[in-house]
């Protein structure tokens, strides 16, 4: 566990020194909310039916772009090979990576929630909604972190990550949009969306920790 924390601290330090990574993710998220509000005219209508979709597509795309970077710099500088040589299990490296990706994304998402609260005058920072956002983010960040190891094979392949990850994330997207809608007071449908989110988060983290050694092997 302490070595996972070491990986996590290293990543956070790098992210702090080179702020371009998460700042561009934040800028991307802000701009995409603006683009959505022009495209769907969110300023006038009752936006609650549309808002969950807007939020989650923004989260997914900025998250995918952020995680696709997570192994790229390491493989360019050779850090990744050094970490694999170190006497820790690859699953530990995965957990550390996962936590650092999760924290940076949660910060971006929190900022975005505050921004949408201000822009659309809809209180979004409720306990239920923050819970949905957290569980959903754990689910997709763990899957995207596992798949982003392909990005370590050169920048041209990075475009493959969304193509691979988004179909796998379809259940998560449907469940989190519906759960967010329920938290915003949409007509309740009976399906247990939050339970589906929890199951997705569990299987993707466990599967990621089990399969990461296989994909990271050189």
């Amino acid at each position: 566990m302490s070595s996972a924390l070491a990986v996590f601290r290293k990543d956070l330090q790098l992210a702090w020194r080179d702020r371009s990574g998460w700042l561009s993710a934040l800028a991307f998220a802000t701009i995409s909310v603006l683009v959505y509000s022009f495209a769907f005219d969110l300023a006038t209508a009752d936006i609650r039916p549309l808002l969950p979709g807007v939020l989650w597509t923004t989260f997914l795309f900025s998250g995918i772009f952020a995680t696709s970077q997570s192994f790229q710099r390491e493989s360019e500088t050779g850090t990744f090979d050094a970490m694999l040589v170190a006497p820790v299990s690859p699953s530990t490296i995965y957990v550390g990576k996962l936590i650092s990706n999760l924290i940076s994304l949660l910060i971006v998402e929190l900022a975005l929630l505050v921004l949408t609260t201000i822009l659309f005058d809809t209180p979004l920072l409720t306990g239920e909604l923050v819970l949905v956002v957290f569980v959903g983010t754990v689910g997709y960040v763990s899957l995207a972190t596992l798949l982003s190891t392909l990005g370590s094979r050169g920048s041209a392949r990075a475009v493959l990550l969304p193509v691979l990850a988004l179909p796998l994330l379809v259940p998560l997207l449907i469940a989190s949009v519906r759960a967010t809608g329920a938290a915003l007071g949409a007509p309740i449908d009976s399906a247990p969306w939050l339970l589906l989110l929890v199951i997705f988060a569990l299987w993707s983290t466990i599967g990621g920790a089990l399969l990461f050694p296989v994909v990271s092997e050189r």
Binding site: V170, P171, I174, R178, D189, A191, W193, L196, I199, W203
Partner: peptide
Amino acid sequence: YIDIPLIHFSVDWW
């Protein structure tokens, strides 16, 4: 392949 049950549940409820 492991994703299939989750996809089925989600789109089924959808």
